[in-house]
């Protein structure tokens, strides 16, 4: 089995701009009304002047234990041996939604045709685009960078083989991952309690986003 690809997320660097989810829709030619394969949730607490907000960007985590794959009756969902990416063969899907029940992250989405589609780490394009594709390659080897990673202004999202993502994560995040946080399905940086540091990072990101948006 090849090395498992996985996502990394740093909530301290996320500015909540939704570039990840919008670019995902564009890459995969998804309707504006369609459910997002990648969602950005804004968690808030407190009231002015002690108001705090924490944006969280999430998608299919391509779990090492893929609960969706286990429950899929027609074996339409595959946890790939070669790169660990979870894909769906929509020519087998019966649209029973059982994967939606089983997924802890609410990743499966269902279109008007009732068939499941979700993030395929940009292995291919469009619903079901990942199924049957050759092994995921890194960008430097000619592979496509996941659009969410490519378009994240704050570099809050990363993706790659587990060892490489672990090498880029902070010691605290790596340790937590090794301690089975999130069932070792995704590497997440601890939330920086230093509000000033976090605000600075977000300010930088927001300036970059403003510049990009003209």
């Amino acid at each position: 089995m090849g090395e498992q690809w996985m996502f990394y997320f740093d909530p301290n660097r996320c500015i909540g701009c939704h570039a990840c989810s919008i670019s995902c829709k564009q890459r995969h030619d998804r309707d504006a009304e369609a459910d997002d394969w990648r969602t950005v949730t804004h968690l808030s607490s407190g009231e002015y002047p002690d108001f705090q907000e924490l944006p969280i960007s999430m998608s299919c985590m391509h779990c090492h234990d893929a609960p969706c794959e286990k429950v899929c009756p027609p074996n339409a969902i595959e946890k790939r041996e070669e790169d660990g990416i979870v894909t769906v063969d929509r020519d087998r899907c019966i649209g029973c939604h059982y994967c939606g029940w089983a997924c802890p992250y609410g990743a499966p989405t269902y279109g008007d045709d009732g068939l499941m589609s979700k993030c395929n780490m940009c292995l291919g394009e469009g619903p079901g685009g990942g199924h049957g594709q050759p092994e995921k390659q890194k960008a430097e080897d000619g592979g496509a960078k996941p659009s969410c990673v490519d378009n994240c202004v704050g570099e809050a999202i990363k993706a790659g083989p587990q060892s490489e993502v672990m090498a880029e994560a902070s010691q605290a995040a790596a340790k937590r991952f090794e301690n089975e946080a999130y069932n070792a399905r995704v590497i997440v940086e601890p939330v920086d309690e230093n509000a000033e540091a976090a605000a600075e990072i977000r300010e930088e990101g927001e300036e970059a986003a403003d510049w990009l948006n003209g």
Binding site: K70, V71, C72, R92, C93, I94, G95, Y98, G114
Partner: peptide, 20 residues
């Protein structure tokens, strides 16, 4: 409830995950 009924009717062919 299903999206593709004929695949469910052809269950001996399509429903191959006996862990589900």
């Amino acid at each position: 409830h299903l999206a593709v009924i004929y695949r469910a009717i052809l269950f001996p062919i399509y429903l191959t995950n006996f862990g589900s």
